[in-house]
Structures are given as structure tokens and as C-alpha cells.
Amino acid sequence: MSDATAPAPGDTPSGGGPTSLFRRLYGRGPFHLIGHVVVIGITAYVLSMMFQARFAPQPLNLALWLLGGAVLHDGVFLPIYGVLNTAFQRATGAGDGTSLKALAMGPAPAAVSTGSAEPAAEADRTPAEPQEPTRDQRRAVPLINHVRTPVVISAVLFLVFLPRILDRQPQNFVNALGHEPPDFLARWLFVTAVLFAGSAVLYGVRRLRS
């Protein structure tokens, strides 16, 4: 099976000899294997210390923290962004009318070069070019980015400062600092309101000028 990515360091041009056999069996050059074995070895050694019972009395809890982020991100959160973005584009007419079902099933046949017997497989191999925006699209003021910008900045602030924004009974905070914390939720709502208002004003100004 050929690999479409650029060669990794240490990969040698294919030819005869032991390297070629290694590449056929393993799939990449020997340095690829060495690098991965070293990193996996360091990880195994480090985990043996992190998981000692005196540091991690509940090993399952530590395992969930170590793996949960990656699995939840790739399996849940990232697909949700994609679906939300498409749904928003459909709602505002900014998209090309792709339904959520079509999104889940893969490329629409029209998006794939004609004459292929196997559209999905063909699409996997041949990335198509992004469509250039039409003249009308370029001249129109895109509403979507005036929504995206405050949504993304506000969501990032929420995620980063989530412990303080959502911790409504912050005993650690009171114990440590000796006073009730400021209302971080109100601050976040205020910043979010300012971001949306600023973006809306900018949108209005751009509409008037266009």
C-alpha cells in the first residue's frame, strides 16, 4: 500500500536489499520504527510512575483523564463543530445547500469528478480544489463571520476559564483567598455581550457601505 505523505526522515528510496523488505513488512523506514519505539518506551516508563498507588489511588480516574480528552475531542466535539457550522450555513443561506444527511454520507456525487464508478473512494484519493468565491459572494458582506468571531472567542474564554465561571460554590477559593470570588459568570456574559455588540455594529457599518 503506497503512502501519500512525504517520506519520514530516514526513509530511503525503495530498491532491493533488506531495507526494501523491511519497508514492505513494516510500511515505513527503520527510523520511523525506532522513533515510535523510543516514545512508546518513555511513555510506558513514565506511566509506571504516574500510576503508582501512592500517587493515583484510583487508576481508572487517571486513565480517563489521560485518554478522555483525545477521544471526546475527535469523537464528539470536532464533529459537533462541523455539524453546527453546516446547520448555520444552511440557515443563513451561506452554504451550498448540503443537508446534514448528505454531510454524514460523504461527498455529494456532483462534487466528485465524473465517470468514477466508486465516488467515495475516488474522493478519498483526489482532493478537489476549493471553489473560488463568485463575484456576488465576494461583494456581499458575509454575516457568518460576524457570528463566528464572537462565538469562537466567547467559547474559547468559556472553556479556558470554565472552572471559575461555573464553580458556583467555590470553597477552595474562599478558603484560600479569604473572600467571596468575583462573579466570573457575569464577567464572561459581559465580555460575550461586548463581542457580539461590536461584531453587530461592524456588520451594520459594512452593510451600509456596500
Binding site: 450555513q89 462534487a111 476549493p130
Partner: peptide, 27 residues
């Protein structure tokens, strides 16, 4: 052979510069 290009690209609604600007704003 850019694996990161979408095989099924949607309409362009934001430029690459726009994405980097958004990242700069959030960061």
C-alpha cells in the same frame, strides 16, 4: 498529495487569513 485538503470542499466563507485572525483573537 495534500491529505488535509477536503475531498468535498464546501463554499468559501472564510479565508486562511481569516482563520489565523480568529485564532489570534481567541488567543
Amino acid at each position: 498529495g495534500d491529505e488535509l485538503r477536503s475531498p468535498n470542499p464546501g463554499p468559501t466563507t472564510i479565508s486562511r487569513r481569516g482563520v489565523l485572525g480568529l485564532l489570534g483573537g481567541a488567543t
